[in-house]
Design a protein around this nucleic acid. Structure first.
Lengths: 185, 185
DNA sequence: TTGACAGGCTAACGGTGTTCGCCTACCATG
DNA sequence: CATGGTAGGCGAACACCGTTAGCCTGTCAA
């Protein structure tokens, strides 16, 4: 997976990649400016010569995550034209389980879109939108996938829960769904 | 040896309610031990005479949230026997939008079940399980509802997105879904 | 009367993000 | 070659965080 962070100097890019490694290896509490500086052989205040503040640094890490998932989603959807939503969902879950701390960073709070390189979020979303056929269904599938994923990461399902079955049930339902006016009630 | 569930004194209960008010009014960054003490007219260290630590305090706040949603979910599901899942979903979203900071606290991270009064989580989950008919569908509906909700709270949908339509589409699909073996693929 | 204890207090510790002013090595231009 | 600007380090310090330790006082039962 190529990782590029536009708008950043070479040194800043190094810092962002090191930050991502630290986050993924030890979790969000470990990602402090001092710990990060330590890994880079410089002091925490020196980081501010390259990055505006911690939030900008985290957003740059998020951007690398979006690039990764964009590539993965594009490949997954392209590789299974018969059930693109199922392919997307499988890839979605696999990424989150492989990169739980990064996934949380990317999704747990409002996105600082003003600090994000333009287009990166849209590219990550495009494969799902194409696979879903409609924005409405894309949003429902996204919500389902994120919900399943984050609840699993947070240990909210019972330990003996058959999550594969829940994923399958949700996907089956959403694949069948056709866009019609909601039933009166 | 039974697990000792910390039983709160009257004073501790006051503290927890004040913490909840502070959280709901000003958000999670404002919920600090010093600020909470200030509102109660005591110093931060004195709080530790009543509460083990901040995590226990937050978990006690979470418990009050579970009690609230349990009541609301029970009433909502009972009031609409024809479409109990839709009733649940509407109530779910309404609670989250009315109490966004509390909702995040309750759902953003792993639950400290060992610090939670027993039964409170199960009671909140029961109405959905009953309405869904199967654990599998209950889990899928929960994931969808949480996903829609947290993505909305995080501002992740486009500002012009028709979220009512996405909710309706997802619910329509999940209401129709019947438990069958997943299609081979 | 005494003693336990509940519930306050101050001081302090180590950690956090961040700002400030300083210094030094490099590099382009006069 | 000399000079000056800049990139990128540095330590000190600030305000705030959760938390601990030790102290003190009022209440109340024995």
């Amino acid at each position: 997976m190529s990782v590029t962070v536009p708008q950043l100097s070479d040194r800043a890019r190094e810092i962002v990649l090191e930050a991502r490694e630290l986050l993924e290896a030890e979790g969000p509490e470990a990602l402090t400016m001092r710990r990060l500086g330590e890994r880079l052989g410089i002091r925490a205040p020196s980081l501010y010569k390259h990055v505006a503040d911690k939030e900008a640094l985290e957003t740059a890490v998020i951007a690398t995550g979006f690039e990764d998932v964009a590539e993965r989603f594009e490949a997954a959807v392209a590789a299974n034209r018969r059930r693109p939503l199922a392919a997307f969902a499988a890839e979605y879950r696999a990424f989150a389980l492989a990169h739980p701390h990064l996934y949380r960073l990317m999704n747990d709070r409002p996105l600082r879109r003003d600090l994000l390189p333009p287009g990166v979020e849209a590219r990550a979303a495009a494969p799902l939108i194409a696979a879903a056929g409609s924005q409405e269904r894309a949003r429902a599938v996204w919500a389902f996938a994120h919900g399943m994923t984050i609840l699993e990461l947070n240990g909210r399902f019972p330990p003996d829960a058959d999550l594969d079955a829940a994923w399958a049930a949700g996907l089956r339902a959403l694949e069948r769904e056709t866009a019609v006016a909601p039933a009166a009630d």
